[in-house]
Amino acid sequence: MRELKVVVFGGNGFIGSHLIGQLVGEGVRVVVPTRRPERAGALAMLPGVQVVAADIGKDDLVPLLQGADAAINLVGVLHSRRAKPYGPQFRHAHVDIPRRIVAACAAAGVPRYLHMSALGADSDGPSMYQRSKADGEVAARAEPTVAATIFRPSVVFGPGDNFLNMFAKMQAFLPLVPLACADAQFQPIYVGDVARAFINALKDPKTRQQVYALGGPSIYTLAELVRLSGRYAHHQRPVIGLPAALGRLQAALFELLPGDPLMSRDNLDSMAHDNVIDPAIQALTAATLGIKLTALEAVAPGYLSPHDRFDDFRARAGR
């Protein structure tokens, strides 16, 4: 790949850190706008990475994008106040910010825009999250001079994730796990494979104006994923599936606690439909991008197990 300059919005998050690491390995120059540059110190130490203080929801983005070959948007949130069709946090992160970035790309002459959406994005979907993600895809295509490529991943796992790690930590101190939507299905995909999908699409002009559904090699119920995370962390607890009404009450109580809830009613609404790639729909997938998918069982034990993490550290230290 010739030397490219790419601006990565939301680059100091879980997926962004993995993606930027791979971009650097490809010799790409990366600009990472963030409101809190002090939290992106690890990224700033990578060769070819420039961390810039910016509020992407308010500041003029055109100067950031001058001379860039592409913009990548990873900004997303999982929770918002309830409203129709979705709350203000979802509107800001999933709709307004993509619209601002794409408009700035058009003004700066940036020809490519790679957009992180979500599997299940649907303007008529049961959850605010799904509806806002669908409207974000519309915003991603708003400028005819900017070719958008859209990615719809299922839940993403890997070192630093907030999914398997959350369930592993819960089982470290809970005697059992009462679980809403225990039978909901997911097709989790490894964060390194998601990063590679972005990079391969960036290399290939044929991916312009395309939508890619990203799922891993296996499908699991939520209960199976909770059990696996507990097993790999050596704290496996019994998982008790909750009836729908009780699960909804649990989520409503979680929403009253300070901070982001472990589970919200909108999360439950999202799980009304299985989060898997429908084989009846001939969607473009990671395989289309030449990616050999990584199994969850090959990666998750290495970052969930404290023993395996220590063994890995010793191996790297040559001890």
Rank of each mutant, 00 (worst) to 15 (best):
33 P>R: 14
42 A>V: 14
70 A>K: 10
127 S>V: 02
80 S>Y: 01
159 P>N: 07
111 P>A: 09
157 F>W: 05
44 A>I: 12
66 Q>I: 09
110 V>P: 08
119 L>Y: 02
98 P>C: 04
75 V>Q: 04
61 L>M: 09
96 D>K: 11
34 T>A: 12
122 D>L: 00
113 Y>A: 13
35 R>C: 12
32 V>Q: 05
80 S>M: 05
159 P>I: 08
89 Q>W: 04
99 R>W: 07
90 F>Y: 15
130 Q>N: 12
73 N>H: 11
43 L>T: 13
67 G>S: 09
153 P>T: 08
103 A>I: 03
71 A>Q: 13
117 S>D: 05
89 Q>C: 04
47 P>C: 12
83 A>P: 01
136 G>H: 00
142 A>Q: 13
111 P>T: 06
140 A>W: 03
100 R>E: 09
109 G>S: 11
59 D>K: 07
41 G>W: 03
92 H>D: 15
141 R>V: 02
36 R>H: 15
46 L>F: 09
99 R>V: 08
156 V>Q: 05
37 P>I: 14
156 V>C: 06
160 G>W: 08
134 A>T: 00
118 A>V: 09
33 P>Q: 14
80 S>R: 01
94 H>L: 04
57 G>H: 07
139 A>D: 03
125 G>W: 00
148 A>I: 07
50 Q>N: 14
37 P>S: 14
115 H>W: 03
90 F>C: 06
68 A>P: 10
100 R>Y: 06
38 E>T: 13
62 V>A: 13
45 M>D: 15
147 A>Y: 04
38 E>I: 07
83 A>Y: 01
121 A>D: 02
68 A>Q: 13
97 I>A: 09
51 V>T: 10
117 S>G: 12
149 T>D: 11
